[in-house]
């Protein structure tokens, strides 16, 4: 956004901050409405909310209004400062994730050279918030949930990162913008016009990424940290009102951001074949949005269909299957990169 308009630094910064501040809650709202309220309802042969607005579109706003009005309750023995801070930390991780995702050739908040690295690093920040929430709530269910979350996020960070390494090797860059460009200019079996979405050569990487993301998002089948039927809601048990709203927004905001990363790394991001320059900047956000919805659809489809693993089974899946697979993927990708 710098070249054409010649805005001052503070102006661009303000715009960027506002965009990020807007995109994440908006994305969370859209995902929560489309998938949680509507897709899940229809999959379960019910209608979901229908009263607030046409087809219940305003339901989430009504819910947010309700949450904001609620009393801000602290458990008696809670560590108040940590308890209050935890949802903010979790939500912050969602915001930070979005900083590096490009929505067009020039539409990026910050085009870091190590964009992939940054995104995966800040995504683990939420673990800190979860642990803080679980510990400070002074509740056994919360504590178990938080410890499970910590164990799980550490275990699944690895397949997630290793799954993405294949893409990085193939693209030869860690910048997300660079990866989009590489896909745009790549050739699939010598067929150049459509570019090369990495989901095809890196299918295994994509699977690993989706599984890892599912675990990072603590969604079924990896939702043991929440596990309504065992831990009631895990680390969120004691939260209510706007602090709970923060967690809720973070949950869907992070899902949105991960879907965006997935779309960027594997589906070609904002790129549409044959559209370049300013047109790509205009079209890009919509294309990216559509791809995000596609990836989210899979993430939520799994969530509504599968039962959940047990904690030890989850660890076994990560360490015994996903990580070796990821290493094989890296090895093969590296070999092909050198040979081809």
């Amino acid at each position: 956004m710098t070249a054409a308009l010649h805005l001052a630094y503070w102006q661009t910064t303000t715009i960027k901050v506002l965009v990020v501040m807007g995109v994440i809650p908006l994305g969370a709202l859209v995902l929560a409405y489309v998938f949680l309220l509507k897709m899940m309802s229809h999959m379960q042969s019910r209608l979901g909310p229908m009263e607030a607005g046409p087809h219940g579109v305003l339901q989430l706003l009504a819910d947010a209004g309700k949450f904001l009005q609620k009393e801000d309750v602290f458990p008696e023995r809670a560590d108040r400062a940590v308890f209050a801070l935890a949802p903010v930390v979790v939500l912050m991780s969602a915001f930070l994730l979005y900083v590096v995702i490009p929505a067009g050739p020039r539409l990026t908040v910050s085009n870091l050279d190590t964009g992939v690295f940054f995104a995966l690093a800040v995504s683990s920040l939420s673990v800190l918030g979860v642990l803080m929430a679980g510990w400070s709530s002074a509740n056994k269910y919360s504590l178990i949930g938080a410890l499970r979350a910590a164990g799980q996020l550490i275990a699944y960070e690895l397949p997630l990162v290793l799954g993405v390494v294949g893409v990085v090797i193939q693209a030869g860059t860690m910048s997300l913008q660079g990866i989009v460009q590489a896909q745009a200019h790549g050739a699939l079996l010598g067929f150049k016009t459509l570019g090369e979405p990495y989901i095809l050569p890196q299918a295994l990487g994509f699977v690993l990424f989706i599984v890892g993301a599912q675990a990072e998002l603590t969604q079924t089948p990896f939702d043991m940290p929440l596990a309504e039927t065992e831990l009631v809601a895990g680390y969120m048990v004691e939260y209510t009102g706007f602090r709970f709203l923060f967690f809720f927004m973070a949950e869907f905001g992070t899902a949105f951001a991960f879907a965006a990363i997935g779309a960027t790394l594997f589906l070609g991001g904002w790129y549409v074949p044959g559209v370049h320059g300013t047109a790509a900047d205009v079209l890009g956000p919509f294309v990216l949005g559509a791809k995000i919805m596609l990836v989210s659809f899979f993430i939520f489809w799994f969530r509504f269909t599968y039962p959940r693993f047990r904690e030890d089974q989850l660890q076994a899946v990560a360490w015994k299957y996903l990580i070796p697979l990821a290493l094989v993927n890296i090895l093969v990708t590296g070999l092909l990169k050198v040979v081809v």
Binding site: R46, T220, P221, D223, A227, T229, T305, P307
Partner: peptide, 16 residues
């Protein structure tokens, strides 16, 4: 049984 194991959908089919 599905809900207890974390699968949300079966119970709605059951109720239906």
């Amino acid at each position: 049984m599905g809900v207890q194991l974390g699968a949300l959908t079966p119970v709605f089919y059951a109720f239906r």
